[in-house]
């Protein structure tokens, strides 16, 4: 079928530590799934594996129907990753940062594309100032432009709200809403219930390297979800089982 993400029995160990203990996950094209989990649940590890930065210990993964093991480079072309780290060069300006990444991706009409994105994230006035002079919120907005520069089919978001003030967080929320244009698939992982519950098609809970719960967002109410979440976190599989 038309799956953007297919994960079967994914495990990842760091030495003795089992960070992922058999993740099964499927997400259709165009859908937006939010996975909630406490610190150490393995959310970042999952995102890093799905985005080809980390090798899985075992399991099968397909992104957009391509096997992660043999299509790494093609998959990287189709995905974008936004985390609390910005992947920007502080001494370079927004124009230069985006030109750098755009050239690595071999994009056509790069200049026009950069102009358009800078406008969308509201940074066109600061296009020639070094990134190091930017506030955290502005850096994160530029990081969004970087993430969307190559028009990725699948976007992974790892705690994108970390370090943002209320205003910047709301702006980010608006931009994430716009991100959902077309058939773009979005996977967001976060520990922040307050921020994450307000959007997306589906929600899931990951604890101790396992996904314990998944439901359509329309079918849950926030209060009982919160209760379920804390129940999962407390009762979830112990680390050393």
């Amino acid at each position: 079928m038309d799956w953007a993400i297919q994960v079967e029995q994914l495990t990842k160990s760091f030495g003795h530590l089992l960070a992922l203990r058999g993740i099964d996950l499927r997400l259709r094209r165009g859908k937006f799934l939010t996975i909630f989990g406490p610190n150490g649940a393995g959310k970042t590890t999952l995102i890093r594996i799905l985005s080809t930065l980390l090798r899985p210990t075992a399991g099968r993964i397909e992104i957009l129907g391509m096997d992660l093991r043999d299509a790494g480079e093609e998959i990287r072309r189709q995905i974008g990753v936004l985390s609390h780290q910005t992947f920007l060069y502080n001494n370079l300006t927004p124009m230069e940062n985006l030109k750098f990444y755009g050239t690595l991706y071999g994009l056509d009409h790069l200049k026009e594309r950069i102009e358009l994105l800078l406008e969308q994230v509201g940074l066109e006035g600061r296009r020639n100032d070094p990134v190091r002079t930017f506030s955290r919120g502005m850096q994160q907005r530029l990081a969004i432009a970087r993430t969307l520069l190559h028009d990725p089919q699948v976007v992974f978001l790892d705690e994108p709200y970390t370090g943002l003030d209320q205003h910047a967080a709301r702006m980010l929320e608006g931009l994430l809403g716009q991100m959902r244009s077309g058939q773009r698939t979005i996977l967001l992982v976060t520990h922040n219930l307050a921020r994450g519950l307000g959007m997306g098609d589906e929600v899931a809970i990951q604890v101790g390297g396992r996904i314990l719960y998944r439901e359509e967002r329309g079918k849950i109410d926030p209060a009982s979800f919160e209760e379920r979440y804390f129940h999962c976190v407390e009762e979830g599989p112990a680390w050393d089982s």
């Binding site: 080809t52 930065l53 093609e74 780290q85 992947f87 920007l88 060069y89 990444y101 991706y105």
Partner: peptide, 18 residues
């Protein structure tokens, strides 16, 4: 460290570059 400060090594590794 330049890459680390800019967290760029991951940015580089995420791009479709051999």
């Amino acid at each position: 460290l330049l890459e680390k400060e800019s967290e760029g090594l991951q940015g580089l590794l995420l791009s479709p570059v051999d």
